[in-house]
Design a protein around this nucleic acid. Structure first.
Length: 282
DNA sequence: AATTATGTTGCGGT
DNA sequence: AACCGCAACATAAT
């Protein structure tokens, strides 16, 4: 479920709580969720936390990295004795009762605080990786949609070489990384481009609009703290995001397009639900 | 009961 | 080679 804005929100909100903390124990409730020798995290301090695409990288003091991908239903929940979010207001009640049936991993820090990795569908993982392994894998990724390295010229050139529908192109992490189904649908609506249009058939003006729209929609997603439509995505304290109140077309079939008032329809593309305006994205 | 789900990978056929 | 559809991973809700 989480796309770039959700993963970025988790990364930002988690960092002040666990940076420089030492892992004293790791409980593995489901072996599929942890890849590598779990003894290598014991006693290690988290020296840095960053995001790339939809993954989070925790650097450890022994030089290894803990990398996580939440896939469809993964959550990272932080809990300590205070049970307070910044500003003094309390966390969601249910996080106090963790671990739950969906808790797969539980990290215990030396100061008594904990980090829970919950994942209903077991697609997600946390994996120990060396710097070399990360470099090798991440080199295959296109630039993050939220970063300055996402540049118009490169984006345009890549699109000109592809004969796939534009929606699939912008969800392809080797072209631009971090854009999933929700933000792809919304960015295409903002740019007023059909999700089915072949990538190489977009003219310069369309690519320009799309490039700006992706940047704008992803930035808004981050600013709103991500999207929660079914309760699966929550932040590190268990709270919903806010972008669902701003959604342009996703999950709004039958409603009016914010741009032209046309009817929003739902279709299928690449096996995924695809929402678009039947008038201005025809 | 069948269909659906915000991610990714891989397979076989064209 | 590139592209497409489909299945796989596994679970729960409608």
């Amino acid at each position: 479920m989480p796309e770039l804005p959700e993963v970025e929100t988790i990364t930002r909100r988690l960092t002040p709580y666990i940076l420089n903390k030492s892992i004293s124990h790791l409980s593995i409730y489901h072996p599929k969720s942890f890849i590598g020798d779990s003894d290598q995290v014991l006693g290690q301090t988290i020296t840095d936390i960053s995001r790339r695409s939809k993954m989070i990288r925790f650097k450890l003091s022994n030089g290894m990295n803990l990398v996580t991908h939440l896939k469809m239903t993964g959550q990272l929940i932080y809990v300590d004795d205070e049970h307070k979010v910044g500003g003094g207001h309390p966390t969601q009640d249910w996080v106090r009762n963790l671990p739950s049936t969906h808790t797969r991993l539980e990290y215990h820090f030396r100061d008594g605080s904990k980090l829970f990795f919950n994942d209903q569908r077991l697609f997600g993982w946390m994996k120990l990786m060396s710097d070399e392994e990360i470099l090798k894998e991440w080199n295959n990724l296109g630039p993050d949609a939220s970063s300055d390295s996402f540049e118009y010229d490169d984006f345009s050139q890549k699109l000109h070489r592809r004969a796939i529908p534009i929606k699939l192109a912008i969800m392809d992490n080797s072209i631009v990384s971090g854009v999933g189904n929700i933000y792809a649908c919304d960015a295409l609506n903002l740019a007023q481009i059909s999700p089915f249009k072949t990538a190489k058939k977009l003219d310069e003006d369309e690519i320009r609009r799309l490039y700006k729209s992706i940047r704008q929609i992803i930035a808004k997603g981050i600013a709103m703290g991500g999207t929660t439509t079914d309760g699966k995505y929550v932040d590190v304290h268990g709270f919903a995001g806010g972008y669902q109140k701003e959604m342009r077309v996703y999950d709004r079939q039958g409603e009016a397009c914010l741009h032209c008032g046309g009817e929003i329809v739902k279709s299928k593309l690449g096996g995924r639900g695809t929402y678009y305006c039947s008038v201005c994205q025809a």
